[in-house]
Nucleic acid binder design. Structure first.
Lengths: 137, 137
DNA sequence: TATTGTTATACTCTATAACTATA
DNA sequence: TATAGTTATAGAGTATAACAATA
């Protein structure tokens, strides 16, 4: 691997850990784990079925069942019947869940926006474009 | 928050999740959780004391005690006495731990290098520089 | 007194395998 | 048969609070 790769890869790994920390710090004051915040934020674009949601979040369906159970007990999400398939359900946000998801999203979004405030437009564009390549968009 | 922020923040969050998935996929075949792989890779620059290590990894010392216990049982890390302080210990990699840490590091590093292979030099530099600003280097 | 690391406890996240109900 | 989701189980990560030994 070339030296330029080492540098870029190192940067990306550093960035991942930094963003993970930010995510955790943003979720905690809201009484959410990072993964719960993630689920709630995904559902802002929802509702989704369990299988679909498990693919989006890269976790097993059974793991998701546990998460949804806990969030449903707190009345942040709801299992809605799927009119087209009696086996399936749609996971949606309750009013309280929507509010909390908005807060979580706003909080970490603002934190990242602060950290990137100093970046010039050209660098922003380069980063956005690079991410597009990396995530295969 | 301005539209340019929304775009950049969205990209960064996407990137974080993508890198997390890569990290998990790289660790798993080696019999390591992502966090275990992280700890082992940090120790490549080690050894470190528990308090120092907990700060590096942004977890509580007691959480780290659990992790080190498990990895020590598998003989991947060792608790070495600190000659200067009888309360403290230094966590270091065993020979097997070093080998595994190298493998983990190489695996995800190669995966990321593949994904970024198409990026031109100017974009690489922009990303590295942007990350420097974000993580406060 | 302050710090280092551990223990005890409780909860969350996670996967695998087996299961029920429906398609 | 195949798919949607759940249950049972076990292991791993996490934090809080209280603790022992040493500084």
């Amino acid at each position: 691997m070339a030296a330029q790769d080492t540098e870029l890869v190192g940067s990306l790994v550093q960035l991942m850990h930094k963003l993970q920390d930010l995510y955790a710090e943003s979720s905690r004051p809201l009484g959410l784990t990072p993964q719960q915040a993630h689920l709630l934020c995904v559902l802002l674009a929802g509702p989704f079925g369990m299988t679909e949601l498990s693919r989006i979040m890269s976790i097993e369906r059974s793991s998701l069942t546990s998460m949804v159970d806990r969030l449903e007990r707190r009345e942040l999400v709801e299992r809605l019947p799927d009119p087209a398939d009696r086996r399936a359900c749609r996971i949606g946000l309750s009013a309280a869940g929507t509010k909390l998801a908005d807060q979580a999203h706003t909080t970490y979004t603002d934190r990242i926006a602060e950290l990137t405030a100093a970046l010039p437009a050209t660098q922003r564009k380069a980063v956005v474009s690079a991410v597009g390549v990396i995530v295969g968009a």
